[in-house]
Computed example of a mutant assay.
Amino acid sequence: MKSIHGAPKLNKPKVVFIMGATGTGKTKLSIDLAIHFQTEIINSDKIQVYKGLDVVTNKVTELERRGVPHHLLGVIDDPDVDFSVHDFCRDALIAIKQITERGCVAIVAGGSNSFIEVLVEDPTLNFRSIYDCCFIWLDVLPPVLNARVSKRVDEMVAGGLIDEVRGIFIPQADYLSGIRRAIGVPEMDRFLRVENHMIDDGIPKEVLLDEAINEIKVNTFELTCRQVEKIRKLIEERGWNIRRIDATGVFECPGKDVEKAWESLVLEPSLAIVGDFLNGQEKAFSTTPDQFPAALPQVRVEMCATN
């Protein structure tokens, strides 16, 4: 029996995971792959699962989706409810089953690596015994990624971040649960309290806003460090066979060359990896600590500590 991709249908359905830190291009890669392999995407970002705050959470737009169906994206109405890892596993398994039963590979993409770890490793789910897994890690070296993150935060501010956070601001907000734990929301609290005349500490609003924006950048830098360290632990401690793709060159290119760099550095190797995986010809590969960039661990620690 043949799948829609022309490859022999093997015993186990197949799932591709696109992993990486915030700002590395996971969304773009997942959409490119989904279009090429005619399939669908399951969001594994625990904040993007909520409706609203599209700018703050950098949620992919309808235009950017290019017609690719997305699951678990903007589906939770209540901003205060906690979407737990168990909720994710339940809903992701349903979506994966639906996609793979149609003869397609399921693509799971997002930055909540702890959610992915539980989905794959929880012994009660038996995920690995049911599905074949392919893991792709899209990585960008820290100095380049931090510059990218800083620019993206500025773009989010220009795109309406402040008004979005104003729209959900309440004095008694719990910033440890629901959508309000998203980076970009708690950092604005002091500025909004002054703006709403709830407090007056003598600091101009403009100064407080600048401080809030800088704090958003710092907290995002620190998030990228945690995300990469989690992937490293999955490789070193869990023994996951994760294919690392270095996308640093994409973000170092001048504007007119970005798309060509993306295709050669990221898309083409990713298509080859997934193509081999779907055809049952995946090459033996294992990312080990000695294959990481030589300065990666220390650089990431330093960037987290100094920003």
Rank of each mutant, 00 (worst) to 15 (best):
E236C: 03
T22V: 05
E155S: 13
I183T: 10
P13A: 14
E211R: 15
V120D: 01
K28N: 10
Q48E: 13
Q48A: 13
V194F: 04
G239K: 08
D246K: 12
Y50P: 11
K12I: 04
V55I: 15
A7D: 15
C304E: 07
A106V: 10
L192P: 07
I242C: 11
S150A: 15
K59C: 08
V118F: 08
E211G: 00
V250N: 03
L271G: 07
G249K: 11
E117K: 12
G202T: 04
I235K: 09
E117V: 05
G184N: 09
N214E: 11
V258P: 12
T306A: 06
G52L: 12
T288W: 09
E155L: 07
L161S: 06
V118C: 06
E117I: 00
E155V: 06
G25I: 00
N126D: 15
T100S: 09
I216G: 01
L10G: 00
T61S: 15
P171Y: 05
P171N: 11
F191M: 09
I199G: 12
L72C: 05
T57M: 15
W262R: 10
G275M: 09
I231Q: 10
E121M: 15
V120Q: 10
T61C: 11
K217H: 10
C225F: 06
E236R: 01
G202K: 06
V49N: 00
L138N: 06
D45G: 11
S150N: 07
R232H: 04
K97M: 12
M19L: 14
D290F: 04
R226P: 05
H197P: 00
V185G: 09
Q227N: 07
P254V: 13
E268D: 13
V228P: 01
L223Q: 14
D54I: 01
H86D: 13
R244Q: 14
N279H: 08
R90L: 12
G111D: 11
R152L: 06
S286D: 00
C253H: 00
G23T: 06
V299L: 15
K9V: 13
T224V: 02
T248G: 06
T288I: 13
Q298G: 10
I162E: 02
V68E: 09
